[in-house]
Amino acid sequence: IEKFKLLAEKVEEIVAKNARAEIDYSDAPDEFRDPLMDTLMTDPVRLPSGTVMDRSIILRHLLNSPTDPFNRQMLTESMLEPVPELKEQIQAWMREKQSSDH
């Protein structure tokens, strides 16, 4: 029984630690959010139409349809242009958020 109590305490400790580690990014500025999924972008790319999306989301879309989801023009992965300035701004915002939450 004592071992179970210790195990339960350890589990509670881990759960509390994980809860502290989770950071809420739901208040991200609109320009940091993917327009299709409304999630925080981690690897922004510009489509030929000028729309900026997260790379993982547009690549997932391209698996089903080789088109720009906003104007239905033909689109391939090679046409995606990285946006390193925005990526750095997002990373800086995330770092600031992490340091203010801890």
Rank of each mutant, 00 (worst) to 15 (best):
I58F: 01
P29T: 03
E13D: 10
M37R: 02
K3N: 13
I23M: 13
E2K: 09
S99N: 10
T42N: 15
K17R: 10
V83A: 07
E88K: 08
L80V: 06
L40M: 10
F32I: 03
S26G: 13
T67A: 02
S99T: 14
E12A: 07
I14M: 14
P35S: 02
D54A: 00
Y25C: 12
S100C: 10
E12K: 12
K87T: 09
D27Y: 08
I58S: 02
A19V: 12
P44H: 00
P29S: 04
L62R: 02
A19E: 13
T42P: 04
L63F: 00
D43Y: 04
D101H: 06
L47P: 02
E22G: 05
F32L: 05
N18K: 07
L36R: 01
V11L: 08
I58N: 02
E85V: 13
P66A: 13
T67I: 03
T39N: 05
I23T: 12
K10T: 11
Q98L: 10
I1M: 11
S56C: 09
S65P: 00
H61Q: 02
D27V: 05
T51N: 12
V11E: 12
I58L: 04
T76S: 09
R46I: 08
E85G: 13
E81Q: 09
D68N: 15
D24A: 07
K10R: 12
N71S: 05
L62V: 03
D27A: 05
D38N: 04
S100T: 06
A28T: 14
I14T: 09
M79L: 07
Y25S: 14
F70C: 00
L75V: 03
R55H: 04
H102N: 11
I90N: 01
D101E: 08
D43A: 04
A16E: 11
R33K: 12
L63V: 12
M53K: 01
P82R: 05
V83E: 11
R95K: 02
V52G: 01
A16P: 08
Q73H: 03
I1R: 08
F70S: 00
Q98E: 14
P48T: 03
P35L: 05
W93C: 02
T42I: 09
D34E: 02
M74T: 11
V83L: 14
D27E: 12
T76P: 03
P84Q: 07
A8S: 14
P82A: 12
D34H: 00
I57S: 14
P44T: 00
R20L: 14
K5N: 09
Q89L: 09
F70Y: 15
D30A: 07
M79R: 05
A92D: 12
D43E: 13
Q91K: 09
L36P: 00
H102Y: 10
D54N: 04
R46S: 12
L86P: 01
N18D: 12
K10N: 13
S78G: 13
E96V: 11
N71K: 01
M37I: 04
K87E: 08
V52D: 01
L36Q: 02
E85D: 11
L80M: 04
G50D: 03
P44S: 00
A92G: 12
E81A: 10
K10Q: 12
E88Q: 09
S56T: 05
P84T: 10
M37L: 15
E96Q: 08
A16V: 09
N64S: 06
S49T: 09
P69L: 00
S65A: 04
W93R: 03
E9G: 08
A8T: 10
D24V: 05
S26R: 07
S26C: 14
A92T: 11
D43G: 01
A19P: 10
L47M: 04
P84S: 13
L59R: 08
L47R: 01
L86V: 05
E85Q: 11
P82T: 09
M94I: 13
E22Q: 08
A28G: 14
E22V: 11
Q91R: 13
M74L: 14
A16G: 10
M53V: 15
M41L: 05
F4I: 11
D34G: 01
S100R: 06
S49F: 15
S65C: 03
S49C: 04
P48L: 01
L86R: 06
N71H: 01
N64H: 06
N71D: 03
S100N: 10
L59V: 08
E13G: 11
R72H: 02
G50S: 05
E81K: 13
P82L: 03
Q73K: 08
I90T: 04
E96G: 11
M53T: 15
R95T: 14
V45A: 03
D38G: 03
S65T: 04
